[in-house]
């Protein structure tokens, strides 16, 4: 199955390359595979962007932009897509055509312009309040070859990690939109109503509990926790 997928992707990549070849000179033709390594967390639609040095979707130790907040709290990529269009970035938005479940991979191609030498990735992790998987502006290797990075889970610092699943995904609305795994609880009192660090930081992890109908958390401590890393990205530079 693995080989077949790779072959399909190679054929697709060739087809795309042929189609765009006369139009522009590309700095790099990338085949990218992203794997959700977690045991019980879905990723919302991924945003993968090649952009110029000095640009960032997020930075640790800095406050999240409102566009990043919308992604981290509700999986909404609208703002980040608009921001990146203004930066002439090369983007692949939602390569998995929806959620990327635990253990699953998505594979796609990205052709980059000369000036777009950095690669970034974000997606919200569900179920969390404002947790996201992120890769911040790594240098895209210029030598042809296959390269791999592991990605950590970040906290956008924009919402208290109360761990209450109540459908809230809009910025400023406290709560977790959903648990796509269907293992979430209800009627939790909430772990906390404070976000103590309002800058982007490594996510402290979720607490959870063992009570599906109450307790402090609607997350299941034996299902929804994770350890870093939470994703792997493999980039083939052609």
């Amino acid at each position: 199955m693995l080989k077949k997928n790779r072959l399909t992707s190679m054929l697709l990549a060739q087809a795309v390359a042929l189609a765009v070849l006369p139009a522009a000179v590309s700095a790099a033709e990338l085949d990218i595979r992203i794997t959700n390594l977690t045991h019980g967390n879905h990723f919302t639609p991924l945003l993968v962007a090649a952009h110029a040095e000095g640009q960032h979707l997020f930075q640790v130790g800095e406050p999240a932009s409102s566009s990043l907040q919308a992604m981290a709290e509700g999986g909404d990529l609208t703002g980040l897509n608009t921001d990146l269009a203004g930066l002439s970035a090369d983007i692949v938005s939602n390569p998995a055509a929806g959620l990327l479940p635990p253990g699953q991979s998505t594979q796609f191609s990205l052709n980059t312009a000369d000036s777009n030498t950095r690669l970034s990735v974000v997606a919200m992790m569900l179920p969390t309040n404002d947790g996201f998987v992120g890769l911040d502006a790594i240098a895209i290797p210029s030598e042809p070859g296959t390269y791999s990075w592991t990605l950590n889970a970040y906290d956008a610092g924009t919402e208290a990690n109360n761990e209450v699943i109540n459908g809230a995904g809009a910025p400023g609305a406290l709560g977790i939109p959903a648990d796509p795994l269907g293992k979430g609880g209800m009627n939790a009192s909430g772990v906390t109503d404070m976000e103590v660090n309002d800058r982007v930081h490594i996510h402290p992890g979720v607490v959870g509990d063992s009570d599906p109908t109450g307790g402090i958390s609607d997350l299941d401590s034996r299902v929804h926790r994770w350890l870093n890393p939470v994703a792997r990205i493999v980039v083939t530079v052609n």
């Binding site: 977690t38 019980g40 635990p102 350890l227």
Partner: peptide, 21 residues
């Protein structure tokens, strides 16, 4: 298991962290 495939491990909880059983 909740996901019937090989993944990274989510870690264990333990009795002090509220998993009383």
């Amino acid at each position: 298991d909740v996901t019937g495939m090989v993944t990274l491990h989510p870690g264990v909880v333990g009795v002090e962290a509220g998993a009383s059983d």
